[in-house]
Amino acid sequence: MDGIILQLFDGLSKGSAYALIALGLTLIFGTLGVVNFAHGALFMLGAFCAVLLSQLLTISHTVVDESRTDFLGNPMQVDIPYVVEWFGEAAGNAIIDWSVPLAILFAIPVMLLIGFAMERGLIRHFYKRPHADQILVTFGLAIVLQEIIKYFYGANPIPTPAPDAFSGSFDLGAVLGFDPFTIIYPYWRLIYFVFALIIIAGVFAFLQFTTFGMVVRAGMADRETVGILGIDIDKRFTVMFGIAAAVAGLAGVMYTPINSPNYHMGMDFLVISFVVVVVGGMGSLGGAVLAGFVLGVLESLASLNAVIELIPGINQVVIYLAAVLILLTRPRGLMGRKGVMED
């Protein structure tokens, strides 16, 4: 039982990442009708925003500390980050420690800009081309983006730790009334889950309760009529592309403490997030979120020892298996709208 609960929570945090990426993908598909294979790369760029910020914050200069000596007896050279110098010892170190959460603020404008540039510069020329062409050009773009990152950061994962306050684990079992030390759960995964919920709620609220969101929803339902009513829907869809990029980027920023970012993390996530989108139903935002969490939990539950003993290897393939079954039995996916990409 405790094993199941642990895997359930693990699945929820894994599913949060799937849901966030799939949400962005669906925003792009639902508004612009573009299949964006570079979305994984946006996730990766977000993660490297966090890496870049933590590197920027630790830029330091070397001073000679006369009061201490190194093992040769010479005065010791100490690297002092500029941040520490400017804000004082305590505040400076705290800023460095909290670089990942701070990277959220840094990543939002950066990812919005990248999103706008991508849409204006490349994607808009592909609205009228077949889906296969869109897949191919964004696939090429994903290769280019990840190679650029590889050139600057190398091929090895770069550890980017969470703030010290959240770096440990806590005893979830004790909270839920089990024996102590049966369910140990890292803080950061819980935070990731809550963060994902906030972002998802934010996106839905934005679409549901603002005028801008209303226009976008109207455009998703019937683009032509909205255009006839005199609204420049293209401009709003560009903004939505930026928002989708920012969502993917934020998912990447917060993911860095869970998995050290490397240049091909986007590709690893891309395949699964496409499966998630398709399972949820192309163009359905709720479906993408639901499918993200369902598949995440499914994947975790399949890694239970009892399940693996029953069906060997199931933990490796359960997501794809679920996708195959759902695609063959429910052409629209879990919550797809009628008539959208049903063939």
């Binding site: 499966v275 398709v278 192309m282 290897g313 393939v317 996708a323 195959v324 695609l327 063939d343």
Partner: peptide, 30 residues
């Protein structure tokens, strides 16, 4: 036989899913 029941992006995803399944199985259980 299974994948061609759908077309377009769904077909791509289905073939991708089958290939990834065979890769994962070949790497572990098989």
């Amino acid at each position: 036989y299974v994948s061609l029941r759908r077309s377009g992006i769904y077909f791509s995803i289905l073939t991708l899913a089958f290939a990834q399944m065979s890769f994962a199985l070949a790497y572990s259980v098989l």
